Amino acid sequence: GMDVRRLKVNELREELQRRGLDTRGLKAELAERLQAALSGPSSG
């Protein structure tokens, strides 16, 4: 899988935006949010 901790802030935001998620917050928050999205149930 993707290691969200290795991504830069702008990369985290890009991935979040692609999934329609909130791109605001600290890098740690963005990484946590993206990780949750990646490990969560895949819809679609």
Rank of each mutant, 00 (worst) to 15 (best):
E32W: 11
E32G: 07
A28H: 14
Q17Y: 14
S39V: 10
S42D: 11
R6F: 09
K8D: 14
A37E: 05
E11L: 05
L21F: 04
R6N: 10
L38N: 03
R33P: 00
K8H: 08
G44N: 12
G1V: 15
N10H: 15
E15G: 02
G25Y: 00
L38H: 02
A28Y: 10
L38M: 09
E11P: 01
A36V: 08
K27R: 12
L7D: 01
E32Q: 14
S39L: 12
R24V: 08
K27M: 09
Q17R: 15
A36T: 08
R6I: 07
P41L: 14
V4M: 06
V9E: 07
G40P: 09
G1M: 13
L26I: 11
K8V: 04
D3F: 08
L30E: 02
E15H: 07
S42L: 11
A37I: 06
L16Q: 00
G44M: 13
Q17H: 13
G25H: 01
L38Q: 04
L30N: 01
Q35W: 14
S42I: 12
V4Q: 03
G20K: 04
G20P: 00
D22I: 06
L26H: 14
Q17W: 13
N10A: 13
G1L: 14
E29F: 04
G1R: 12
R33Y: 03
V9A: 07
E11G: 04
Q17P: 00
L12Y: 01
A31C: 14
N10V: 09
L16I: 01
K8R: 11
G40Q: 13
L38F: 06
L30K: 00
R24D: 08
A36S: 08
G40H: 12
L21R: 03
L7E: 01
G40F: 10
G44C: 14
V4H: 04
E14H: 13
N10M: 08
T23Q: 05
G25R: 03
E14D: 10
R19Q: 04
L7R: 02
A28N: 10
G1T: 14
R33E: 01
Q35G: 06
R19P: 02
A37P: 01
E11K: 08
D22P: 11
R24M: 09
L26E: 15
L26F: 09
S43N: 12
E11V: 06
G20N: 06
L38A: 03
R13I: 12
S43I: 12
A31Y: 09
A36F: 08
R5W: 15
S39R: 14
G20V: 00
R33Q: 02
L34W: 02
